[in-house]
């Protein structure tokens, strides 16, 4: 019997595919967001509210991931924004190869921002890099203040945490200060914005942050082209 040393990362195949996606996005000059949350936290609604604010200045394209239906891509397309739907069947997350397939038929040419809305799930998507620049997580405050500690990985790997539905705080029994403390403990480096995409409360902080990020990245891309 032979013992063979392997030492290979199990995520390697996905990493390789994510790297290829990255090349496509770079060629298109797009900044890419992997948008994640539990089901029903308000990803699509936050995305709609975000598009409304930034669409006059930036070109947006959206890739939607769901187990079934085209509800979400229909909603985005109704706003005049190009959208492509991935239906995973029973797979609980998007992986880089599914996104690669989508890019083959839906190249995001000329899009300043590509948003990939992941399958609603607070656990699985966190382990699969899609080739994104930024991970943005939506968490609805009514899910409970303890969740960052119970599901730490997605919070920890996100660049931005949007605490949505703060208009429901008075009815939820959740203390925003406790939730904020738990998010900061799990990810002290994240940008955190308490928002309500329904009432618009707090949205200006997030939109300002994103606009700045998109401007900085397009300047960097321009200077790379010049050199």
């Amino acid at each position: 019997m032979d013992r063979v040393s392997v030492v290979t990362d199990i995520r390697q195949a996905n990493q390789n595919a994510a790297h290829e996606n990255r090349k496509v996005f770079d060629k298109c000059g797009s900044c890419v967001i992997n948008l994640m949350s539990a089901p029903g936290a308000g990803k699509t609604s936050v995305l709609e509210a975000t598009i409304r604010e930034i669409a006059p200045s930036f070109k947006v394209a959206v890739i939607e991931g769901d187990l079934e239906t085209t509800f979400d891509s229909d909603r985005i397309r109704a706003m005049g924004v190009p959208a492509h739907q991935i239906t995973t069947g029973s797979v609980c997350h998007l992986d880089a190869r599914m996104v690669a397939k989508a890019l083959a038929v839906f190249p995001p040419d000329g899009a300043d921002l590509v948003v990939i809305e992941n399958v609603g799930n607070l656990v699985c998507p966190a382990e699969f890099n899609l080739g994104e620049d930024l991970r943005v997580m939506v968490f609805s405050v009514v899910e409970g203040a303890d969740k960052p500690k119970k599901y730490p990985l997605m919070f920890h790997t996100s660049d931005v945490v949007l605490l949505n539905k703060i208009d429901l705080l008075p009815y939820s029994g959740v203390a925003l200060s406790e939730l904020l403390r738990n998010v900061v403990e799990v990810n002290p480096r994240a940008a955190i914005f308490p928002i309500s995409c329904r009432t618009g409360e707090g949205m200006e902080g997030w939109i300002g942050w994103l606009t700045q990020e998109l401007k900085t990245r397009s300047r960097q891309a321009l200077s790379t082209l010049k050199t």
């Binding site: 032979d2 013992r3 392997v6 030492v7 990362d9 199990i10 480096r189």
Partner: peptide, 19 residues
């Protein structure tokens, strides 16, 4: 903010093969 030293591993370390 702390850095992670270990705990994120997901690795095939070795395999044993039959001739």
């Amino acid at each position: 903010p702390l850095d992670i030293l270990s705990g994120r591993e997901m690795q095939v370390e070795s395999i044993e093969l039959a001739e």
